[in-house]
Design a protein around this nucleic acid. Structure first.
Length: 794
DNA sequence: CCACCTCGAGTTCC
DNA sequence: CTCGAGGTGG
């Protein structure tokens, strides 16, 4: 090898290092790639080639050295040259905390009340892992964790794998520059990582912070390299040879950005206490939509000279404070795991927790959904667990803290018998939910069925709450939904007396007796008032499996009356939109169960009279086509295509019933279909089924089609999603408004959503809508939109 | 057959 | 709100 080529390679290697580092900066830090990935890979491999040939050209700042080297035995200790101090946490989480800090600063600086406001640099407090990056002559030489502030751990090998951390600084960096910042994991990266773990059947991680911290402290850099970590710089440690050092904190962070280090955009310079509280409010509103977790914000006196003047106390700077938001995650003890029995018999494990204040409320219970979930989270009774109220409402046990185990924890054992009725608990193959097999013989299921029936979106019996229904069932006054309508005043009063007795409530005075009678009268009246619900509500109230609000509306809208629905053949259900085999089967099972038939009859006899819908005969005739019906009859060998074919030849059910063997032969169908059809028709059961279907269809369609008063609305086929709390309208009112204008209200945001109506405290749905670029309305916007299309000027 | 969209069901706290 | 699972369209 001649010297000339070696010199050329050295130049080329230097050039490649610079180019690749520039590309990496654009990609990771600026989020604006300069070249396609393939081009980066090509140059990367070229550099690898040169370095393999000339090991003496290897440099610490070479991008090829991000992942390299073998796993360590243990992490080495690093003594920080300038201690990594923590900042004081303001205990007052309200605005008062910001004001108190400003007052302390002004007093320490000896400022008069009339003096101008102090200038502050304000930024986010990231929920990650604090780190010190040491650059010498612009090259990253060491990365260390905070540790106890004096001595940390050397994690250089892992930190090198983080794409956003430059291995070489841009511009004229000081001879020595220690950068302080936070390593964290973005929420979306965290979720993707977990999705990948699930895919591979590996354990998922609990939260971004623990995952990031764990990754940085890995011994094997290859593992750390697979964890998507990010970094923000916000301060400095030791500095030597900085020619024009900044004079403010904001200027310092800007300078770090100038060196190619990633800094957070959510920072600003502001004046006085008012500026601090404004930033506090601003970030509080933004918190849930940030791409990463924060646990608060940080206020710093902007002027570095003033910082020096303020100095330290108890090894904490007097010129900075962390102002936290109420925790969204807390640790608590998992005291016990109990099971609940739901309306459908679903056995749900529920966590009983030591009370813990999280996200603004005290949480003592949290659902664990099902057994798989519980095992996935590795929960044992007695564990210390992480509880979250993810910006939302419903508490969730995120996972257990394995390090806190004492050995006295024990596994939860799923019961095999229902705790309420003693029936067997069965878990169907491939299902995640275990169910009590007791059906309505199980008191829990009976009670839940009645609670459901009386609920607001169903029969809406005002004043008949969960408590009373439980007592009524417990003392035997009601057993089934129909019994509600035969309840007498005395039954209610007796029930209340016995319930009070059980609870040890003092015997009643005359005054209280009067109140109780009034209560019972009102309740009886409320029950009577529920007797004429819209048909869909009654259907939903019945609690048929797989039939919720939406399916109930479909049934009511297409078949019009309870009479037509309860005697409909399975195939009719299945041709309706959004109803498939499973739901059709469930409906058919429900209406052919003698117990249910009796209950329905009793309801009708008691005077329950649902408001029927107009029967859309014309549309119905279109939908109940021969091909569709054939498809749902489950005739062997008759595929969807062949059903269409046969439907063209035999155009009505009536004709099919009459079909003789010779005629089937003449149809010119594939031989196997001919014989299968022949055998199928010859079966008495099938023949009767067909007869009934034919009979049903002809009666149903014989009803004279009424004029379809086609209300053409500009909202037709528009899908809305509601989220958050609107200022004046309730959710139900907004929903009614949209529906009466012809729109549809859906529960989740997708590409098909036309508008998202967002109120205050909107959650993930709003974020999702923003991501998908869906038009977002506030209440006023919705009203305007409705108003525009209503009452066109004459 | 798969991917995507909806719906159903269960749940917390005040 | 979230998960699971049913329905549908490509």
């Amino acid at each position: 090898m001649d010297l000339f080529s070696q010199a050329a390679d050295a130049d080329r290697a230097e050039e490649l290092r610079a180019t690749l580092n520039r590309y990496a900066h654009a990609y990771y830090v600026l989020d604006a790639p300069l070249v396609p990935d393939a081009e980066y890979d090509r140059l990367f491999r070229e550099l690898q080639g040169i370095e393999a040939e000339h090991p003496e050209l290897l440099r610490a700042d070479s991008p090829t050295q991000r992942v390299g080297g073998a796993a360590l035995k243990a992490l080495a200790e690093v003594r920080h040259r300038v201690p990594m101090l923590s900042i004081e946490t303001e205990t007052d989480t309200t605005e008062g905390g910001a004001i108190a800090f400003d007052v302390r600063v002004r007093r320490k600086l000896g400022l008069a009340d009339t003096a101008p406001p102090v200038e502050y640099a304000v930024e986010l407090k990231f929920d990650g892992l604090a780190i010190n990056l040491r650059y010498e002559e612009g090259v990253l030489v060491q990365a260390a964790t905070r540790g106890d502030g004096e001595v940390g751990e050397d994690v250089t090998h892992n930190v090198r794998t983080i794409g956003g951390i430059p291995l070489r600084l841009q511009a004229q960096a000081p001879a020595v520059l220690e950068v302080r910042g936070e390593i964290y994991m973005r929420r979306d990266d965290f979720e993707r990582l977990n999705a990948r773990q699930t895919e591979r059947g590996e354990k998922t991680f609990i939260n971004p912070r623990n995952t990031a911290a764990g990754a940085v402290r890995q011994l094997d850099p290859a593992i750390a390299a697979q964890r998507p970590l990010s970094f923000f710089a916000y301060g400095v440690g030791e500095i030597q040879g900085w020619k024009e050092p900044p004079v403010t904190h904001a200027g310092l962070v800007d300078a770090l950005a100038g060196f190619g280090l990633p800094v957070c955009a959510h920072r600003t310079v502001t004046q006085g206490a008012a500026g601090l509280t404004a930033f506090h409010q601003h970030i509080a509103a933004l918190r849930d939509s940030l791409p990463f977790d924060i646990d608060g914000i940080v206020y710093k006196v902007n002027s570095l000279a003033l910082q020096r003047e303020l100095g330290f106390r108890n090894r904490e700077p007097n010129w900075a404070v962390a102002h936290k938001y109420p925790a969204q995650e807390e640790l608590t003890k998992l005291l016990d795991i109990e099971v609940q029995v739901g309306r459908t018999g679903a056995i749900t494990p529920v966590a009983r927790l030591a009370p813990v204040f999280v996200g603004g409320v005290t949480v003592t219970n949290a659902t664990l959904h099902n057994e798989d979930e519980l095992r996935r989270k590795d929960l044992k009774i007695g564990d210390t667990v992480i509880v979250r109220r993810a910006g939302d409402v419903i508490p969730e046990v995120v996972g257990s803290v394995a390090e806190r185990r004492t050995g006295r924890e024990h596994e939860f054992v799923m019961p095999t018998l229902c705790p309420v009725c003693g029936s067997h608990i069965v878990r169907e193959e491939g299902e995640s939910i275990a169910r009590c097999s007791g059906g309505l013989a199980c008191r829990a299921q009976r009670t839940q069925a009645i609670i459901h029936f009386a609920g607001r979106r169903m029969m809406d019996i005002d004043g008949l709450g969960e408590r009373y229904i439980e007592s009524l069932v417990e003392f035997g006054y009601i057993d089934r939904i129909a019994d509600l309508y035969t309840l007498r005043l005395d039954d209610l009063l007796d029930m209340k007396r016995r319930a009070d007795e059980r609870d040890g409530v003092t015997p009643e005075t005359v005054q209280q007796g009067k109140i109780a009678t009034k209560w019972a009268e009102n309740l009886i009246a409320a029950i009577a008032a529920s007797k004429q619900p819209p048909l869909a509500r009654l259907l939903f109230a019945l609690g048929i499996r797989h039939v919720g609000e939406s399916t109930a509306k479909t049934l009511a809208g297409w078949l019009g009356s309870l009479e037509w629905i309860r005697c409909a053949p399975k195939e009719i259900f299945a041709v309706l939109p959004d109803i498939g085999d499973v739901v059709a089967e469930s409906l058919h099972d429900f209406f052919s169960e003698p117990n249910n038939e009796r209950v329905l009859d009793e309801l009708l006899r008691a005077g329950v009279k649902p408001l029927d819908e107009h029967l859309p005969t014309a549309r119905l005739a279109q939908r109940i086509g021969m091909a569709e019906l054939l498809g749902h009859l489950k005739i062997p060998r008759l595929t969807a295509i062949r059903s269409q074919h046969l439907a063209a030849l035999v155009t009505s059910i009536a004709a099919l019933v009459e079909l003789r063997s010779e005629q089937i032969l003449a149809l010119d169908l594939p031989a196997e279909v001919t014989s299968a059809l022949d055998t199928w028709l010859a079966d008495k059961g099938n023949f009767d089924r067909l007869k009934r279907l034919e009979n049903y269809c002809s009666r149903l369609l014989a009803i004279t089609p009424q004029e379809d008063s086609a209300v053409v609305s500009p909202f037709t086929d528009m899908t809305f999603v509601l989220t958050g709390t609107l200022p004046t309208l309730t959710r139900d009112q907004a929903r009614a408004l949209i529906e009466t204008s012809g729109g549809k209200v859906s529960s989740s945001v997708s590409k098909k959503t036309d508008y998202v109506v967002a109120g205050s405290e909107a959650g993930s749905k709003l974020a999702n809508a923003q991501k998908l670029g869906i038009t977002i309305l506030d209440e006023a916007g919705l009203l305007a939109l409705v108003g525009e299309h209503k009452d066109p000027p004459l």
